[in-house]
């Protein structure tokens, strides 16, 4: 992947596929580090599947549905000297509280750090493709914050679908304006 925002798009698609009602995409950044957390309340995975998604070449493929998405993000993080973690609680084991959390930590100054790229486009693409699920996006850097919560937007819209062209456009412009106001140097 050429941009980390594409990895984020890819991993978040898994959350949606897992039936998540809310998926949180949280970026915490300093001058040296970037931490990406993707957390959902979807159906979760049992421990064997969690192991399989991080290392697909070692599975016996009985699980299937396991692809390259997670290993690609893991590689992107580890090649900067960073770290990667995935944890999950399956709906079967815990019907009341389940979901998956993926955390990737990057050393921004490493030669092999992949730039974040067009994260706004990733967020609008996710909402356009999945207008009936909710996303919470937050990006903090040096005390400043860019954020978006589709639950708030949904409340204002009163039934107008989130994938309406004008709404998607508003979301994109809103995020871009937040970025130029709060992160003027980026």
């Amino acid at each position: 992947m050429k941009e980390l925002s594409l990895n984020i798009l890819d991993i978040t698609e898994n959350s949606v596929k897992a039936g998540a009602g809310l998926t949180e995409i949280i970026l915490e950044e300093t001058d040296d580090n970037l931490k990406i957390t993707i957390r959902d309340d979807g159906c979760g995975m049992d421990p064997e599947t969690v192991k399989a998604v991080t290392d697909p070449f070692y599975t016996t493929r009985t699980t299937r549905k396991v692809g390259m998405g997670v290993p690609l993000l893991k590689l992107a993080a580890e090649q900067t000297g960073g770290s990667f973690k995935i944890s999950s609680v399956s709906e079967k084991d815990s019907p009341a509280d389940h979901g998956t959390e993926v955390t990737a930590q990057f050393n921004k100054n490493h030669l092999d750090f992949t730039p974040l790229g067009d994260i706004v486009s990733t967020i609008t693409t996710l909402i356009q493709g999945h207008p009936d699920t909710d996303f919470l996006y937050s990006h903090t850097y040096a005390g400043a914050c860019v954020s978006l919560d589709t639950r708030e937007i949904r409340e204002v819209l009163e039934g107008v679908p989130l994938d309406t062209y004008e709404v998607i456009k508003w979301i994109g412009e809103n995020l871009n304006e937040q970025y130029s106001e709060n992160f003027p140097d980026q």
């Binding site: 204002v156 004008e166 709404v167 508003w170 809103n174």
Partner: peptide, 19 residues
């Protein structure tokens, strides 16, 4: 700034179109 008021206006315009 793309305000919530602007989103509100989009909603008002779109409401009839949804059907």
């Amino acid at each position: 700034m793309k305000s919530l008021a602007e989103l509100q206006a989009i909603k008002d315009r779109m409401k009839d179109k949804v059907v």
